[in-house]
């Protein structure tokens, strides 16, 4: 879900890059962590919790809370610990993806 951004960059001239978010192109600030860039771009939700399915997104922004988990190339990653780069393929993190193994 992309809506009006809750955050605004102090530097309005900041260059943008295009990443892929849930299969759609998304312009985000170039020199940020992925968590900050998604917030700046107006993404309000980046995962569902695996047990109750509650919506979540970045919280602590410093690698502790694990609420900013996203899938990058199918791997669970903390968005606040990843730098934005052009073409980065990011997916919402949801239980379905983690359960999608074959030996269950």
């Amino acid at each position: 879900m992309v809506t009006e951004a809750l955050f605004r960059s102090i530097d309005q001239t900041e260059p943008q890059v295009t990443i892929e978010f849930n299969g759609q192109p998304l312009d985000v600030p170039a020199h940020m962590t992925l968590a900050a860039a998604l917030l700046a771009a107006g993404v309000r939700q980046t995962r569902n919790t695996p047990v109750s399915g509650a919506p979540r997104t970045a919280y602590c922004m410093m690698g502790v809370c694990f609420d900013c988990l996203v899938l990058i190339d199918g791997v669970s990653r903390q968005a606040c610990q990843v730098r934005v780069k052009p073409g980065l393929r990011v997916h919402t993190h949801s239980p379905v993806h983690i359960e999608g193994d074959t030996d269950a």
Binding site: T49, V51, F66, I98, E99
Partner: peptide
């Protein structure tokens, strides 16, 4: 001493 690791939260399996 016992060491323990904890993972990210996963769907119940």
């Amino acid at each position: 001493r016992g060491q323990i690791l904890v993972t990210e939260r996963l769907a119940p399996f």
